[in-house]
Design a protein around this nucleic acid. Structure first.
Lengths: 176, 176
DNA sequence: TATTGTTATACTCTATAACTATA
DNA sequence: TATAGTTATAGAGTATAACAATA
């Protein structure tokens, strides 16, 4: 079409470094312009922009807190599905998380080599392989979920319990 | 740390193909399990998971509708900031959209070559360059914003006007 | 013939180091 | 010395085509 080949993506990442930043040095008085007087009001009316910023903040927090476990975000989501659906096939995993099959292969191999999952022949379909969490994998995931829950609590710290639930419902209403 | 080098990302993409798919082949009767009986209830309690799915659906729709314009999502957001902030510098753009400077260079060059923006010397700082939308660029953006607004309307079609506004507020409360 | 899992591979996106020219 | 813009490049994420084994 144009010049450089496009595809997906959008809006870039938020202003990061949320923890190490003064957060509001305009607190004294003066005009609210100084660090970032840039007008982004239009972008802020777009769901995609706002959703992406939340996703990126969430992932940033998740990666920080989950660093002690052997789980990247994508590992975590894959493990979640395997733990909750013993014997799930690679194909089902791909459909549920919308991972392309070639890109799942390495993830599964890595989890298996780390002793977190097992691959057993599928009882009905000789082509397929059933994925099962090992005892160690299941245990690690129990701990990891507690960490993920803690990240969630922190992310939602400015939301009332009612608004927090409402946010999940509204997001799901958009993509379901 | 482990084996394959990690970094960011999360949860993979949604079930895509929302438009071209039968959407419900269980329409006849039968149990609601068949295409995807996979349990993802836990992941659905996580804001990052839900936010990412919304962002990806939004981007997919955006890319579809915006294909007639020369704007990728990232081009669009960059142009938005330039149009609303004439003379903005690359550095400010990077801060506002959290793009790393080396990754902005190509975007700016492409927009300039397409006649959508101009680079003028900065009045105060000889190191910096002020970015300005050309008449053509501004015109294209006016049209593109209407398209973006139409995408928003479609995305929010299952939300009441009040809930739609509420969703933006809740998302911003998380990352602001 | 269609599907599962896989390999190989290309393309895109993101990140780091280092250079230049101005401040 | 520090900052704006840039170059080159590495690393991670995403995508398509094609193959063997099984249905």
């Amino acid at each position: 079409m144009s010049d450089r080949a496009p595809r997906s993506r959008m809006l870039e990442r938020p202003t990061r470094a949320r923890s190490s930043v003064p957060a509001r040095k305009t607190r004294t008085a003066a005009p609210p312009a100084e660090a970032n007087p840039i007008d982004t009001r239009y972008l802020r009316t777009l769901m995609g922009y706002n959703a992406r910023r939340v996703a990126l903040v969430a992932i940033e927090q998740f990666v920080q807190d989950m660093a002690v476990y052997p789980f990247k975000p994508v590992d975590f989501s894959v493990m979640c599905v395997i733990v909750d659906n013993p014997g799930v096939t690679s194909r089902q995993l791909c459909a549920a998380l919308n991972i392309l099959p070639p890109n799942l292969v390495g993830l599964i191999q890595s989890l298996e080599q780390r002793g977190l999952i097992e691959r057993r022949p599928h009882p009905q379909d000789g082509r397929a392989t059933g994925l099962h969490a090992t005892a160690q994998g299941a245990q690690r995931m129990m701990e990891a979920r507690r960490t993920a829950d803690a990240v969630e609590d922190r992310l939602a710290s400015r939301l009332s319990p009612r608004d927090r639930q409402k946010l999940l419902e509204l997001l799901q209403a958009v993509y379901d």
